[in-house]
Nucleic acid binder design. Structure first.
Length: 494
RNA sequence: CGAGAUGUAGCGCAGUUGGCUAGCGCAUCUGGUUUGGGACCAGAGGGUCGGGGGUUCGAAUCCCUUCAUCUCGACCA
């Protein structure tokens, strides 16, 4: 056994770390907190990008690119914003290196100090609003609907592959609008795009809602979020969309003449999802045998393994399979035919299971004689022997079925792990078991802080939709007994 | 940034009362036999023992120092 995963039950974090490395998604780099995303992991990101980008374009957005480096002064224009990010910014102070006097190392040239230091972007609101203010003079210039695919850097103390790294890849949408209502609707619309993507492409069910003041993005009026539940019972914030009000417009002096000829500050949104989604994908579906990828994101949807003795037999099997491969490709299915004779079939089976390939086909001498093929599905780990006739359409349907099944499993899991509690004592017990908890809260930051302090649980969001009977009805805060409008979603989170 | 642990071949580890040429498993390479769930035999290559300094006739082993990683806290998409 070349590659063994730590079982989830034994050590969930270790399982996750093992999987990331052994499934060839990413590895540790020479730079603290930064990872190398390997080709297999990156191709999952590329598929995510394709699906998201298409949805952004369909909703009228265009892509652009803004600089990596931001003048330090920009960050401090919005008071809350700087407060939120100042502690985790990397700063560029010099623009030149030189060889030291001993001639054996390069050192920073003290002569080359920057007049104004530059910040490696933790997010781009400031540089973008400094730019947008020049683009916007009239209501006729609005809306601006831009997105950028970029890297950002947040100097985190503790990092984990995909879930929290110092540098990560993401997209950030930044839009400018004429009215409060239009911007607010945009923030909601993009949250819905994220939720649709999470559920239909990633097969990860999410709870949509609004963040409490404490958890809100620094500089936003409101932050909307999609929250997913991982297999260890912890929540993962998987995407956020912010209604920024006029905060950044005011900070950067972005005004326009409205339809009444008056000067007004521009209304804004921003929204993003990151490579963290790969972490969500792993922790939502995978098992002790390795990754389980939903067909809609799997870089390889079908792998075909020939089982042969000698070159002559391989040739015969390959000929038999060629039309099947062609037909699958015609149906838009990504296929890998692994006829390498350097690895045994058993090794390949284990390897592709580890990598989460949704469907595996195998053909040996027996199948060839019978005109059959072995079909194995990753999500259920079941095998069946099927006739070669009509196999391609069968596989196409099977992939759709697997996508549906993976999602349903995740929905069922969430259903089993979403509870309501009415007393704080009960809450303390339940939170130890993990999962989502719907409970009443008095709406104050003090109570929220007390709960976090005592239980490590945070308010993930105030959900938009109802998940259990009566969760939208008023009640009494489980801690203080003060009135509460509706139940809010608690969990321990990543 | 606080507490603890660990650094020996690509990976996982043994060796640490100071003493021969630093070892084992996996991986790698060569040749052969194999191929329906992580094959077998034979041979081979691969090491600044995390870095620096010290003690000593002699250091992976003892001392000092430094760096890195992991776990747990504080902080966070």
């Amino acid at each position: 056994m070349a590659k063994e995963l730590t079982p989830r039950a034994e050590n969930y974090s270790q399982w996750y770390n093992d999987l990331v490395v052994k499934a060839d998604l990413a590895e540790q780099s020479a730079v603290r907190g930064c990872m190398v995303i390997k080709p297999y992991g990156y191709s999952i990101w590329e598929k995510m990008q394709q699906e998201l980008d298409r949805r952004f374009k369909e909703t009228g957005h265009v892509n652009a690119y803004f600089p990596l480096l931001i003048p330090k002064s920009f960050l401090s224009r919005e008071a809350k914003h700087v407060e939120g990010f100042a502690k985790e910014c990397a700063v560029v102070t010099h623009y030149r290196l030189k060889v030291n006097d001993e001639g054996n190392a390069v050192v920073v040239d003290p002569e080359a100090k920057l007049e104004e230091e530059l910040i490696v972007r933790p997010t781009s609101e400031t540089i973008i609003w400094n730019t947008y203010k020049n683009w916007i003079k009239s209501w006729r210039d609005l809306p601006i609907l831009c997105n950028q695919w970029a890297n950002v850097m947040r100097w985190e103390m503790r990092t984990r592959p995909f879930l929290r790294t110092a540098e990560f890849l993401w997209q950030e949408g930044h839009t400018a609008h004429e009215t409060y209502e239009e911007a607010e609707a945009e923030a909601q619309r993009m949250l819905n795009v994220y939720a649709d993507f999470a559920e239909n492409v990633m097969a990860v069910p999410v709870v949509k809602g609004v963040k409490s003041e404490t958890e809100r993005f620094a500089g936003a009026v409101d932050t909307y979020t999609i929250e997913a539940l991982m297999q260890d019972g912890k929540a993962l914030q998987s995407g956020t969309s912010h209604f920024l009000g006029q905060n950044f417009a005011k900070a950067f002096g972005a005004q326009f003449q409205n339809r009444n000829g008056e000067l007004e500050y521009v209304w804004a949104t921003s929204w993003g999802v990151s490579t963290r989604l790969i972490g969500a994908l792993i922790m939502a579906h995978s098992d002790d045998n390795g990754l389980v990828l939903p067909p809609n994101l799997a870089p390889i949807q079908v792998v075909i393994v020939p089982i042969f003795k000698g070159e002559e037999q391989l040739k015969q099997i390959s000929e038999k399979l060629a039309p099947v491969i062609a037909e699958l490709k015609q149906l838009g299915i990504s296929v890998k035919y692994d006829d390498a004779d350097t690895k045994k079939p058993g090794w390949k089976f284990a390897e592709y299971e580890l990598k989460g390939v949704p469907v595996r086909l195998a053909m040996g001498a027996r199948d060839m004689e019978n005109g059959t093929i072995e079909v194995a599905r990753r999500d259920t780990l079941t095998k069946e022997t099927k006739s070669l006739d009509g196999i391609a359409t069968y596989i196409k349907d099977l992939l759709a079925d697997i996508q549906k099944n993976i999602f349903q499993k995740a929905v069922d899991y969430r259903k089993q792990n979403i509870k309501t509690v009415d007393t704080y004592e009960e809450f303390k017990q339940e939170i130890e078991k993990g999962g989502f908890i719907l409970a009443h809260w008095d709406g104050t930051a003090e109570t929220e802080a007390k709960i976090k302090e005592e239980t490590k649980a945070t308010i993930r969001c105030i959900p938009f939709d109802s998940y259990v009977d009566g969760d939208k009805e008023p009640g009494k805060c489980m801690v203080t007994g003060k009135p509460s409008k509706c139940r809010v979603l608690f969990a321990r989170a990543y």
